[in-house]
Amino acid sequence: MQQQQKSLDELTVMAKRVRRAIIEMIGAAGSGHPGGSLSAVEVLLTLYFRTMRHDPANPKWKDRDRFILSKGHASPVLYAVMAEAGYCPADKLNTFRKLGSMYQGHPDVRFFPALEASTGSLGEGVSLALGMALAARLDGSPARSYAMLGDGEIQEGQVWEGAMFAGYHKIDNVVAIVDSNRIQLDGFVKDIMEIEPIVDKWRSFGWHVIDVDGHNLAALDAAFQEAAATNGKPTAIIARTIKGKGVSFMENNPKFHGTAPTPDEVKRALQELQ
C-alpha cells in the first residue's frame, strides 16, 4: 500500500527520533558523517511522508517516485528515515558501517536493494535522477525523481552538465535539492570555493528555483508542491540549513562533517534531542 501521509506535527516528533537514530548509529560505528545527516532530516521526512508516491511494501513499484542521495556520505539520515517508513529494520540501524550490514558507509544497492542508487562519489546524483526521469517520460509513467546534493558537492562540474541538460530538455519531473548548510569537508564553503549566488546559477540554467528554510516542514511541503505544479522546467530547491542541526556543539561546526561523536558526546547529544 502506498505510503500514507503524516501530519507536520507527527513529522516534528519523528524528526527528533531520526536525529537520535543518526547520533546513535554514528556513535556506535565510531565513524561517519553527522553534520550533513542532521542538516537533511526535514527535507527527507517531507519527501518520504508528504511528497513522494512510494510503497515500502513494494519498493520496486514501477511508478514510484525516486529519491537519490547524491551526497551519499549522509547515509545515516536516509537509513533512519527509510526505517521510519518501514523499508528496513530500525533495530538494526546500529550495525551501520559494520561487516555485512545492509547499512553500508555509503548507500549500496547490493546490500540494500530498496535504495535507488549506489552513491558516494559526489556529483553524480542529478545525472542519475535525470536518467530515471527520462525513462519515466518514455514509459508514460507519472514517476518523479528527487536528488539531494550537498552545497560543496555542486562544485563538481558534472552537476552543471546535468543542470544544463535538464534545462534544455525541459525535464519537469526532476527536482534537485541543495542542502545549503555552508560547510563542506575542509571547512566553510566560502573558504574552500564559494558557490553563491546559487539561486542565480540554477535559474540561469533554466531551472525553476525555490529558496526555502530547510528545517521548516511547512515551507518544505509547500516548496515540493510548487515543484510538482511547475510544468516545462526542472525545479531546484535551495534548502537553507544548519549543518549539525539539533545538537548544539555540532551546529555550524566543520569538525562534525566527518567525525563521529565520542560516547560522552553521544550522551550529551541524546539529552539535547529528548
Partner: peptide, 8 residues
C-alpha cells in the same frame, strides 16, 4: 580505508 566502503 575500511568503513567508508567501495565508493571511496
Amino acid at each position: 580505508i575500511g568503513e567508508d566502503g567501495p565508493s571511496q
